[in-house]
Each structure stands twice: as C-alpha cells, then as structure tokens.
Design a protein around this nucleic acid. Structure first.
Lengths: 111, 111
DNA sequence: TTCACTAGTTCCGAAAAAAAGAACTATTGA
DNA sequence: TCAATAGTTCTTTTTTTCGGAACTAGTGAA
C-alpha cells in the first residue's frame, strides 16, 4: 500500500479544487469534513456510508479530494482521519472555499 | 438546428457551476466573457481560437457553460453573442462567481 | 435567385475518466 | 494466530469527453 499523496500548496490549482468539488458526493464529504467555519473535524469513510456508495468508489472520491489539496488524510489505527486544509488554501485563494461552502450549504438547505 | 438551451435559475446547481468552471479552457472562456467586475462583454468562438482547439470541442465547451447557467448565448447574425449571467447567479449564490474568478485570475497572473 | 463564405452545431467513432465488484493489505483485538 | 474492520488496488464495465467530418444557418456578393 503506497503512502497517500498530498500536494504542496503550489501544486494546487483552482481547476483542481473546482473539479474535486463539482461532484455531489465529494462536496457533501468535504462540507462535512470542513465542518462549521472551516474548523478541522474528522471523518472516516463510514460517516458517509448511509448512501450505499460502494467503498471502492468512496475511496476514489477521497483520493481526488486529497490530491486536489482539499483534505489531508492520515491513518489513525485502523481507520482514516481526514482534515480539511482550509487555512492553507485560504491563504492561497482567499475566500474561495468559504464562498463554495456557503453556496453549497444554502442549496442543501432548500431540499 | 435545435434552439439553445438555457436553464432557469432554479435549475442551476452549485455542482453544475463548479463542473463547468473546472476545465481550464472553460474558465478561461468564462473569465473572458464575464470581463472585469462581471460586466457583460461578448465573445465568439473565434476569440479563443488562438489555442488550436477544434471547433467541435469549443462548441461543446460553450454548450456546457450555457447549460450550467453561466452564460447566455444568442445568435447575432452569423455569429454568436455570449453574455455572462452574473447578476442572476449572484442573486442565487452571492459571492460565488466573484470568488472563483478572483482565484482564477490570481492564479493566471502567476504564469 | 444561386453561390460561396463564415460561424457554429451535430454526428459518430476513438480515447479518457469514473463507477463498482472482487481480491488484497494493514491494523487492532480477541 | 485468527478473525474482524477499514480502506486500497485491480480489473472490467459504463459514462464522458475529444475531435474529425458532414451538416445548417445567416450574409453578402454576382
């Protein structure tokens, strides 16, 4: 099992971030990880597993989130701890994540 | 030739917008159409044609931008006039487009 | 009119990306 | 050492995207 890949901030692109967040499952995951006000909470795959998405697919989604730079994943015993890299990204693209999360949450509320 | 499709604002989703903007060619096109401060300038396919992208591909890109709700396309004689639907989208998702365009432009500057 | 020209769309096959089942790996705790 | 759990990787299938070729629509001559 090869170690997880995390880009440095200068490898992070707007396109990559938007692509990672352009999938309904992935924004939902990211919104949960980022928590309120971009604080750093953590989640495992199980946390999203209500929706009956195969775990291989979920694993790929997490990979895309990691490799876009949005989250950092660390093995914590048998499970995974994911934290949002909000501060770093906000330093590079101020306001971007807040705007996306705000829009996503306002939309999610209306359903 | 079937008429161009434009979603109403309640068909517009965050995911759709992000997907449309997650492609390098499409953000570039959109940034140009949106112009400074989201004013409404116009563009034809030709305006982006420097990059040797086949016109069938460009046509698809414009279609995705239209159908996500980002732009409105109207035939103006022999060519196309595209305008950004900034105001409408900003009413629905305040600050989203400004943040994305801001991030994109700051990134584009550094190359 | 008819013809040529320009701008863009549509069709269709090829290439690339995403989804998901099955097998595998790593860690923990009997 | 063995079973259980969480997640990854492999491989096949399905979906999207790309791009060439043919088509359409509008314009401006002859």
């Amino acid at each position: 099992m090869r170690p997880l890949l995390h880009p440095s901030m200068d490898e992070v692109t707007v396109e990559g971030l938007l692509h990672a967040l352009s999938d309904p499952v992935r924004v939902a995951i990211y919104a949960e990880i980022a928590g309120n006000g971009c604080g750093q909470s953590c989640t495992s795959l199980a946390a999203v597993r209500e929706q009956a998405i195969p775990k291989s697919t979920l694993s790929q989604h997490f990979k895309i989130l990691r490799e876009s730079g949005l989250i950092r994943g660390e093995r914590k015993g048998v499970e995974m701890q994911n934290t949002a890299r909000c501060a770093e990204i906000d330093a590079k693209f101020p306001g971007l994540l807040a705007a996306v999360l705000g829009a996503y949450r306002s939309q999610a509320k209306k359903r």
